[in-house]
Amino acid sequence: MDAVAVETAAILVPDLLGWVPLQTGGDWMFVWENRRFLLLGTAVTILLTLASVGLGFLLGLPAGAIEAYGDGRLQSVVSTVGVALRGTPIVVLIVLFFFGLPIPRQLGSIPVLDVRMSGFLAATLALGLRSAAYQSQVFRGTIQSVGEGQLKAARSLGLSKPAAIRHVVLPQALRRSVPGFQNEFTIVLKDTSVVFAIGLAELLRRGYQLFTQPGRQGAIIEVILAISLIYFVLTFTTNRLLDLLDHHYAIPGGES
């Protein structure tokens, strides 16, 4: 079992080491030599983030609209599922989906990236559904902030309620959602590292594989700092890109 191996390594490794201060040259060379390996991990991280945030958007937007406008059973079901997803740790969701869902293990691997399809699907579902639960909160809030007046005005023109929501309320709500969405995007990006729990070869897992290689314990801190830097660059650029998006949308509307 993969999980057991992780555990054993986790117990043994620090004991073998003692106190290891930052090392010089050679260990950074080791990181550099493995740049391709780490960059592939970065690609997995990005792919996983995009898939999860995308799934979260596709489900979170309608869920937010239902929470804002729906009534009765449907709304109650959506908000209860939302509470369950937001109230459970992401690592528990990931392992639950990984072990609990009947995803066929024979799906094979994603070429080049060396990632098992089954694990990738389970991780995307867990991260994506949880993100949908958070995104629904963002969208519900901004939909409500657009206000009843806009909806009434649209309906008085003869639009049906769903059409009014779709063509009048949502476009305005989406613009206001960029900051909340930005926050959620970076949360997903950072939480892809939790997929470590099911051994998927994303960035953190690959870093771990590098420094647990026999004889490479000296390079632990260099490897972890290198991957932390990559994560930082990813969150930083994501934030700047979404700032641009926010800026782009803020100008014509005036009201942010």
Binding site: D15, K190, L204, L225, S228
Partner: peptide
């Protein structure tokens, strides 16, 4: 910004594996 820009799990790894804070 540094803390919020990197994953929590990576931070735990820095302390536990990287700095080997366990023994001290």
């Amino acid at each position: 910004e540094l803390i919020r820009g990197t994953p929590l799990l990576a931070q735990l790894f820095v302390l536990w594996f990287g700095l080997s804070l366990g023994p001290p």
